[in-house]
């Protein structure tokens, strides 16, 4: 009865190329942080960091996606449900890359599904960063 789980865990091979791409993403993250600082210094009221490659419209859609669809299990206000809370303090000591990886590949043997078919890596990275910063509530 655990067959499906066994099959899923063998998919971890997929994760290998992700790790390679991580170094690039750190640069992206650094860029995002720099942009945030500039934006915060220059503009008023824009709380969401500009990420390279994601339009403001897509960021708005992803925010809504996290609230409504991740919210099915994690609660619309991300305070938890069948799934654990996704508040910023839950992610302390955990890198955004790990969070993005969980979003993309799920956690085998649990109800957390792999979202890779519905999200790009850049989108998962953006969500992970936003959750870690506590920007999505």
């Amino acid at each position: 009865m655990y067959d499906h789980m066994a099959v899923r865990t063998t998919k971890s091979g997929q994760k290998a190329p992700r790790h390679k791409s991580r170094r690039v993403s750190y640069v992206e993250i650094a860029a995002a942080i720099a942009l945030t600082c500039i934006a915060l210094a220059a503009a008023i009221g824009d709380t969401i960091a500009s990420a390279p490659g994601l339009t403001q419209e897509r960021q708005r859609q992803l925010t809504e996606f996290v609230r409504q669809d991740c919210g099915s299990c994690h609660g619309m206000t991300l305070k938890g449900g069948l799934g654990r809370p996704l508040s910023a303090d839950m992610f302390e000591g955990r890198g955004a890359d790990i969070i993005a990886e969980i979003i993309l590949d799920g956690i085998p043997g649990t109800a957390m599904p792999p979202w890779r078919a519905l999200l790009t890596e850049a989108e998962a990275d953006w969500i992970a960063e936003a959750l870690k910063r506590g920007d999505i509530r």
């Binding site: 009865m1 067959d3 499906h4 099959v7 899923r8 669809d69 099915s72 299990c73 069948l82 799920g106 109800a111 599904p113 792999p114 979202w115 078919a117 519905l118």
Partner: peptide, 15 residues
């Protein structure tokens, strides 16, 4: 019992 016949589950995006 075993309605999935041991096949890999598809992702469940909503319970």
């Amino acid at each position: 019992d075993n309605y999935g016949r041991g096949e890999e589950k598809l992702p469940v995006y909503k319970m």
